[in-house]
Design a protein around this nucleic acid. Sequence first.
DNA 1: AAGAGAGGGTGTAAGATGTACACTATCTTG
DNA 2: CAAGATAGTGTACATCTTACACCCTCTCTT
Lengths: 244, 244
Amino acid sequence: MTGFDNFFKSAFTVDNVIFGFDEGDLKVLLIKRGEEPHKGMWALPGYFVYPKEDLDTAANRVLEELTGLRNVFLEQVKTFGAVNRHPFGRVITVSYFSLIKIEDYSLQPASIARKAQWHSVAKVKELAFDHNDILSACFSRLKWLVRLRPVGFELLPPKFTLTELQHLYEAILETSLDKRNFRKKILSMNLLVDLNEWQEGVAHRPAKLYRFDPDKYHQFQAEGFNFELKESKRKERRSAGINP
Amino acid sequence: MTGFDNFFKSAFTVDNVIFGFDEGDLKVLLIKRGEEPHKGMWALPGYFVYPKEDLDTAANRVLEELTGLRNVFLEQVKTFGAVNRHPFGRVITVSYFSLIKIEDYSLQPASIARKAQWHSVAKVKELAFDHNDILSACFSRLKWLVRLRPVGFELLPPKFTLTELQHLYEAILETSLDKRNFRKKILSMNLLVDLNEWQEGVAHRPAKLYRFDPDKYHQFQAEGFNFELKESKRKERRSAGINP
DNA sequence: AAGAGAGGGTGTAAGATGTACACTATCTTG
DNA sequence: CAAGATAGTGTACATCTTACACCCTCTCTT
């Protein structure tokens, strides 16, 4: 080597913030640690990156081992490298966040997944390592992403109602939106296809179901849009809960 | 240890994309490599992170050693970890970008800085390692940041004209803007203070000088704004040049 | 079967913002 | 003093954003 040997003594990991949406609530998939360090605490799913493995590959591997899902939304967010963040030595971690449909996940319970559980993002308490910081960074990223790209749709089932979509935006943006203005805006984008089908089995007037138009969707993925709506003045604001 | 020894064999570095603005052109500070690998090629300034050093500290160190500057804008962007990106072994790099005033830099030429030189971002050719990708990622980040935060001012001298400010936006956004609309928009933000001073020594009618209002500036740093102006239809578009 | 409960669904007017566009003013230099 | 260079300025039109309230349709209960 060349005198740099002292630098080749660190390890790195990926940690994955997996978001899902259910019952009007934004959730994150956490794992109860079965081993030291931080045994028994909730943590983000993650693992060491293998010597011959790319970062994105590692993040995908962690995601797939846990959820059985491939080819879902996954994006690098930020790298955390505080000197003493891991008791085994110098370990820096590259954080990723992904968006999945909870219903897809629950169909494929993998082996590790037994220790995994969905937690409401707003109610997450103390996590292992610096995982609260990581969650917080990824949640912020999701928050701005949702204004610029149609990411929301990664989180909903194939058929959804406008109210479900609105609740998703409200959960991510931690705000409340005006129903009429929300509908006007989202429908004017030509992003949604009216399925002419209706909800079933609900104890009220059933809502119309929509899906998104894949062409328009990918166009917006690439070009972005500007989704701005002021908080509605009439309802109360939803509250955060991360790092209070 | 605990069976994880095999993972503690990698190294990590920081690489810093230092942007400056001069003569209507967005520049990046590059270093001609004096050693292998990639000896003789232009590269981003960077170095290994020391074993007891935080990532942000390392990035600041690299910046200060090169420019003599402290407390300037510096932000983490993305981590690159392709398996074979470095010939010495597994090295992942955390990229940062910073914004400095070129005039501040040129006052303090440090020792390493002898190999350093400003290059027009639009004309950068092949760089060492994967540094073209890193530059590209950081430039993209700057591009969206400039729409949401008043970062532009990190790059200009304390007193500047509206035309200089407009040229800065045009260089970053790679577009051209309508003069009247640009002025209307930027002045309506109450971000600028009219100094009642004028340019000197120019061969035409001198322009008024402005500075930014620090209170308003920090408010926008924290809250963000939405700087959108359509490309002017009258002039041609500036072109990019990165990864053509 | 009638009423209560629970969301679903709809339009408009006023204000704010964005866009397109062209000419005069003021300075230096030759 | 003319030419060259850039500074500086206003308006009309179109588009987008915001605030706001009521009736509709379904189920469930009694």
